[in-house]
Write a protein that binds this DNA or RNA. Sequence first.
DNA 1: TCTGGGGTCCTAGGACCC
DNA 2: TCTGGGGTCCTAGGACCC
Length: 397
Amino acid sequence: MKKKFLHIDVNNAFLSWTAIERLKKGDTIDLRTIPSVIGGDESKRHGIVVAKSNIAKKFGIKTADPIYIARKKCPSILVVPADYDAYRRYSDSLYKLFLEYTEKVERFSIDECFLDLTEYLKPDEDLVKVAIEIKERIKNTFGFTVNVGVSDDKILAKVASDFEKPDKVHTLYKSEIEEKLWKLPIDEMFMVGKKSIPKLNRMGIKTIGDLAKTEKTIMIKNFGKYGYMIWRYANGESGEEVNYQEEKPKGIGNSITVPYDIGNIDELNVILVQLVEKVAYRLRKHDMYATVVNVQLKNSDFKTVSHQKKLDIRTDTTKDILDVAKELLKELYKGDLIRLIGVRVDGLVEKNEMQLSIFDMPENTKNKKIDETIDRLKERYGENIITRATDMKSNKD
DNA sequence: TCTGGGGTCCTAGGACCC
DNA sequence: TCTGGGGTCCTAGGACCC
């Protein structure tokens, strides 16, 4: 049976959502009607463009541009900070709305969802009509616009939602790919990034059609699995399904670009503690254990290095993770100037799957108790209220 | 270049085992 | 030792996405 997929993508999500929030709070200027961007704090060296208004876009401002570049392109640009709590709320409301249409909803990112309506439409119901209805409902209920892609292939639905914006419904059925997809330049293909483009160009592949018509075996020979994947995508044969079961995370990470380069390990350790606190807290909120700990450093030359360690025992305690993270940092740090430090836990497993080994319980009990207490305080008073006493030595001398 | 942060997936090479 | 080949696990790094 022919599948019925929708891909819904919020237009300029972060900027639209911030604009609405500010209007609600009495601001008279709609960020969407002026040259504006959502950006990080330059004084903390987080200064890049996260989202832009359509007017800002007309000045040539692109996502991930440093803000000083955005200012060069448009001196009158208004830079506004992000409000991730608000974004999470809008995302949740959207998701709830989609569940009225089908239980097969996949949250692909904070501002994108896939819907599988194959078994949820009445015989006389038209998929495009439903798409338009959803789009209009969102606009009327929340005050922001979306694009909806309609297709019988999941990835084609995603590509379709990226066609002309904003506030549009586009179809890209498999039967339409020759006319609507193949003429597009290769860089507009989903999953084709700037590293692959030169290599594809050298093979004479300039359009998505060129890719689709290249021999499958040649793509596999040159790009391996990845080559086969993008070849299928270009041919409208992704075969992918909507993953609507709530997906458990496979890893949880936290990293920060520090306000100034750091050249000593004691200072790095202090930040490492904060990062591990956050990561371990989120890990416990997911009711999961980690089996791998990873520490990453980026130096002032933007060179990135990382070390990871598989744990002997799965854990969710801050202390266990911190002990390993400190070891990894020590191994990793060669004395240069550090711009970014990050911690990740990987190889996550669900708690209920765990075979309780009585051998690793006693010494863990104390740390578990500490974590539970801290988590409760965080829930009551907010995430930033409490931080474990860090390495006091580095503050004393 | 004054260049963020959160993810997923893949690959290549080394260690180790039989 | 002038040392095969296959499988698995682990690690580091990179490409890509939003």
